[in-house]
Computed example of a mutant assay.
Amino acid sequence: MTGTTLATLAALGAFHGLNPAMGWLLAVGRGLQERRRAALLAALPPIALGHLASVAVIAALVTATRSVTASRALAVAGGVLLVGYGLWRLLSERHFRWAGMRLSAGQLAGWSFLMSSAHGAGLMLLPVLLAEPTPAGGPHAGHLAAAPAGALTGLAAAGVHTVAMLAVATVIALVVYEVLGVGVLRKAWFNVDRLWAGVLVAAGVVTLVGAS
């Protein structure tokens, strides 16, 4: 992966970390409920693990099937999916409900996996991964011999992305817990879901243009 790719993956991870729906608000809730910063910090790694699993599934599949034809077909399908999902999120009146606060580490990871998947977190990486140069071997790079290396690249990309997401989510959770309190969200927080949906649509358009 190039430096530009790594920086973009980290930036997307930071963007995901900003979204309270990705788990930092749940971690803050745990900390406030138990009145312990340690409870907040303990909730974040399982949340990040669930996010990593959700993103890694798509990232590994994308990078493991990188033939010229497959990449173009995947780009078109991914672009359509991004645009469609983004428009659905923009137009939908549904809101995802917060789960109960008393969850085990495994339940937190499972909740995060489902929430990240429902919000299309892995889809955001499609334009970045598909823009990477085709691995050595040209049109045959997507064959079974190259698939394991491609899958590892996808997993590494998901790892970089998730580390950035966890770092940003941790900082925000601690600031809210220690300084602001959740009451500030009612006054200052804008609708990140709408922004995210708009970015999904834009990413889908970029992917479709690049595949044409």
Rank of each mutant, 00 (worst) to 15 (best):
M1V: 10
T2D: 12
A7Y: 03
T8G: 07
L9K: 06
L9V: 10
A11T: 15
L12V: 14
L12G: 00
G13R: 00
G13T: 11
L18G: 03
P20L: 05
A21H: 09
G23C: 01
G23D: 02
R30W: 03
G31D: 00
L32P: 01
Q33I: 01
E34H: 13
R35P: 07
R36T: 04
A38G: 10
A39V: 07
L41S: 02
L41G: 02
L49R: 08
L49V: 15
G50M: 11
G50F: 03
H51G: 11
H51I: 09
H51R: 04
S54D: 05
V55T: 09
A59P: 01
T63H: 08
R66W: 05
R66F: 07
S67A: 11
T69L: 15
L74D: 08
A75M: 11
V80Y: 07
L81E: 09
L81Q: 02
L82F: 09
G86V: 03
W88D: 08
L91Y: 08
R94Q: 10
R94M: 04
R94S: 15
F96W: 13
F96K: 09
F96V: 14
A99W: 06
G100F: 04
M101D: 08
M101S: 13
G106V: 02
Q107G: 11
A109R: 00
S112A: 15
S116C: 03
A121R: 01
M124A: 11
M124L: 15
M124S: 12
L125Y: 00
L126V: 13
V128P: 06
P133T: 07
P133G: 06
T134N: 03
A141H: 01
H143M: 08
A147F: 03
L152G: 14
T153F: 01
G154H: 03
A164Q: 00
L166T: 01
V168L: 12
A169N: 02
A169L: 05
I172S: 06
I172M: 08
A173C: 07
L174K: 05
L174W: 05
V179E: 13
L180K: 06
G181L: 00
V182F: 05
V184C: 07
L185N: 11
L185I: 07
W189K: 10
N191R: 14
V192T: 11
V192E: 09
R194G: 15
G198M: 02
G198F: 02
V199E: 06
V201Y: 03
A203Y: 04
V206S: 14
S212G: 15
